[in-house]
């Protein structure tokens, strides 16, 4: 070692430090992923002793299903995008509004912050079950309240028109606290002097929100948007635990791509098709991540 230059020594050390992590990533993540790609080229049944190579047949099937609006796969993709497009903006807007409110008040702000954050530190499976019980068509909390006020009871999770929104509400509810904390941190970064300057210029609160707060929160917004988008794209736990027998119903109105992957792989034993679905999802997430990197590296 002593004959190496300082720089060479550092290179050697870098490799030594990375030895265990890189082995881990290659062994536990990369190789299994490659095998998933490989599986997607086969008619792959986990119970079978030998698997038949079918080329791109699974992808052809996937493409056909995507074009057929009646297929469950098509519905799964549509629903997944719905979760993203409905859930993500609602989550961000609500969290930002609450963060602004918390910024306004002085007393009890710590308490409120803690209350909003609590759902985030609880178990998703438990939360999904609790909400399933809250949504119960007759004796769940919401319907008890509705009858109490003389309003008609709602089916919530049992209706193909309401189920997706009902599940989205739970995801928003659980993730709200996290987004609030991030927004609060972002708001702290905005120098007080900016607002004072705006006030002197005669700008009201509404104007200073649009002209100062929002532009300065841009990085935070993008960061959260991407984070939430990816987590909505991979939605699974809530749906499997909140629908009857985890089927993503009623009428496939709540099913997601990951739930399809799981069902195809483990209920229908069609691993090849399930892998093709995963590859498609991988592609979507990849594109979003690239867009994310582009946005994040830009300066505001």
């Amino acid at each position: 070692m002593s004959r190496l230059t300082i720089r060479q020594r550092q290179v050697v050390w870098a490799y030594i430090f990375l030895l265990v992590p890189m082995t881990f990533f290659i062994l536990i993540r990369i190789i299994p992923t490659l095998s998933a790609f490989n599986i997607s080229l086969h008619d792959w049944n986990p119970l079978a002793a030998e698997q038949t190579f079918v080329g791109l047949e699974n992808y052809r099937q996937l493409w056909e299903d995507l074009l057929n609006p009646r297929s469950v796969t098509h519905k799964a993709f549509v629903n997944t995008f719905k979760y993203v497009l409905i859930g993500m903006p609602i989550q961000l807007v609500t969290a930002l509004a609450i963060a602004l409110l918390l910024n306004e008040i002085t007393r009890m702000s710590t308490l409120f912050r803690a209350i909003f954050f609590i759902p985030f530190v609880t178990s998703t499976v438990a939360i999904a079950w609790v909400w399933r019980w809250l949504y119960q068509p007759q004796y769940g909390f919401f319907n008890v309240m509705l009858s109490f006020f003389g309003l008609p009871q709602q089916p919530f999770l049992k209706s193909p028109n309401q189920a997706l929104y009902s599940i989205t509400a739970v995801v928003v509810w659980q993730g709200l606290g996290f987004a609030i904390i991030i927004f609060l941190a972002g708001l702290k970064q905005v120098p007080e002097t900016f607002y004072e300057a705006a006030k002197i210029d005669g700008a009201n609160r509404w104007q200073s929100f649009w002209r100062i707060t929002l532009p300065l929160l841009n990085t935070t917004l993008v960061y959260l948007a991407v984070l939430q988008t990816i987590s909505f794209l991979r939605m699974f736990d809530y749906v499997i635990n909140m629908t009857t027998q985890g089927d993503g119903g009623p009428l496939a109105s709540t099913t997601t791509v990951t739930l399809r992957v799981y069902r195809e792989a483990f209920s229908s034993f069609d691993m090849g098709y399930a892998s093709a679905l995963t590859v498609a999802l991988f592609g979507i997430i990849l594109v979003i991540t690239i867009v994310q990197l582009k946005f994040l590296s830009r300066d505001y």
């Binding site: 049944n45 986990p46 119970l47 079978a48 002793a49 030998e50 792989a265 483990f266 034993f269």
Partner: peptide, 30 residues
């Protein structure tokens, strides 16, 4: 659990299964 055990070469020697699964399991050679 059955699906995960089979490719790993472990799992049951005698397994219970719903009668309606027999054709699929037979097809797979399980």
């Amino acid at each position: 659990k059955i699906a995960a055990s089979a490719p790993a070469g472990v799992g049951p020697d005698v397994a219970t299964l719903f009668y309606g699964w027999v054709p699929a399991w037979v097809d797979a050679g399980y």
